[in-house]
Design a protein around this nucleic acid. Sequence first.
RNA 1: UGGGGGAUCGUCUAGCGGUAGGACGCCGGCCUUUGGAGCCGGCUACCUAGGUUCGAUUCCUAGUCCCCCAGCCA
Length: 568
Amino acid sequence: MTTPAPSGSSNFIRDLVTTDRTAGKHGGHVVTRFPPEPNGYLHIGHAKSICLNFGLADEIPGGKCHLRFDDTNPTTENPEYVQAIQEDLRWLGFDWHGNMFYASDYFEQLYGFALTLIKKGTAYVDSLTADQMREYRGTLTDPGRDSPFRTRLPDENLDLFRRMRAGEFPDGTHVLRARIDMASPNINLRDPVLYRIRHASHYRTGTTWCIYPAYDFAHPLSDALEGITHSICTLEFEDHRPLYDWIVAETDAPHRPQQIEFARLNLTSTVMSKRKLLELVERKLVAGWDDPRLPTLKGLRRRGVTPEAIRAFCDHIGVAKRDAIVEMQLLEHFIREDLNKRSPRVMAVLRPLKVVIDNYPEGAVEELDAVNNPEDVSAGTRPVPFSRTLYIEQDDFREDPPKQFYRLAPGREVRLRYGYIIKCASVTKDPQTGVITELHCTYDPETKSGSSQEQRKVKATIHWVSAPHAAPATIRLYHPLLLADQTKLPAEQDWTQSLNPQSCELLTGCVVEPSLRSATPGARFQFERQGYFCVDSDSSADTLVFNRTVSLKDAWAKIEKTQQAPQR
RNA sequence: UGGGGGAUCGUCUAGCGGUAGGACGCCGGCCUUUGGAGCCGGCUACCUAGGUUCGAUUCCUAGUCCCCCAGCCA
């Protein structure tokens, strides 16, 4: 049969690149590029592109992938993002091997290409206002009209353009446009703007320039200058391709890259647009770019997601041209799959319920042997203290247990993980509120884990933490950023209305086993029976702070849900 | 009623004229000192209508629906 690809599965771009390479196109070389604009943080949508571009370069002998900052707009870009993007890329596990570039480094060459066009008569300086230009552009169905300045001669254009560069004109007074076709059915070809005046300081070139190249001009030429063979971008640039090709051809650029488009990643119940992410951060609707609820790489990292999980996800979602919305559950699947193999298991009680084991000797402490990772025997074991007073999860006790509830209830038995079988003898309640305050149980000393004395089976095993040894913790549970019910909001309504107000659930008063006292930020664990958690950067010696990365699959929750569903 | 793209299980995705495969999800079952993991089984898809062909998801024609484009953003 077929041998699986080294990484990722076959897709139309991979096939095309392979075909080109074997056909000897571009001398058999493959050079891709990842061209972020440093005006925001990278998110998982970028990861798809990164995995594609760097993945291609890595798997093809001699293949290269450049990192290029597409920094042609001084008003939105800044070095903080340049730094963060590099960090995220490295964290994801990719290396540009020194091939890091900036479109701003090409400004002089780009200017030269513009001069070439002007001399040839295929670019001109237009002095219409932005509003006028819009009017002249026509509409989707009506052709545009020529600007009265379209007939300016090369010499005048040259003079004007040089003076634009020299700073003689204020913003918005002139632009350089390509002279293509104002009646083109493709609006991108109706004399697109190549340069605009911006008296703004650029984070790299300072005030050296006051004219800046537009994307449609800078991008193809940057690709050409770097010898990019396959310029992979998203679908919305598809109808820019004729322009891309026009620019490269008309400027007699040294090399002709090929633009290929694919569908960007969309994920359910989250936001992926740069604009919305920025808005969330600026309006402080989230804690920052690294808020664990965000699909930013920084957010995912802080949440405890591994780069391996993200890469596995990107490899499996495929690359195609149809618009798609991937279910968040698929991402979660890859997160669980990765974390299951590598996370040490520990016990933590999120919502504590006190349990006193009446027949266990007061003051006695036993060190029980707990397995660190059943998926990895080499992870070994650790001692966990056991005593007369412990905490169990409130959810693991029901005074009036429903059908199929196997856990603790009055008169019922459960096993304490790594410990003994206990039986619930009585329930203590607050006389005022009726709330259960503690449970009294008895243990069977013959049932200690690992002892071969008795092999009694009970229906359930629950986790616990010894009260006198417990370390206090604060735990954050994350829920979808967006409300599940996205029923058509009025078009003009603020999109943030669909944010889930309960996306971050803060749990205080949690208790975790003492071995966690030494856990440092970034450390990941599986809290047995609950999920994968990661020590947050807010964690301190007195209070540990954990973020839930993703819950474990919960069979009981499903049963309970169907039990609650209306009977028919 | 301009141009550019796209339609395959609920969701992603494979297929390149030989009778639809994988993953997630869902539903059963086994196993289990995590109701986790693992294992076994099942579920459901070619946008529509014509045509070509022995044979069409693949080719042709005509429709339908969806996405993108009217920034001096990228």
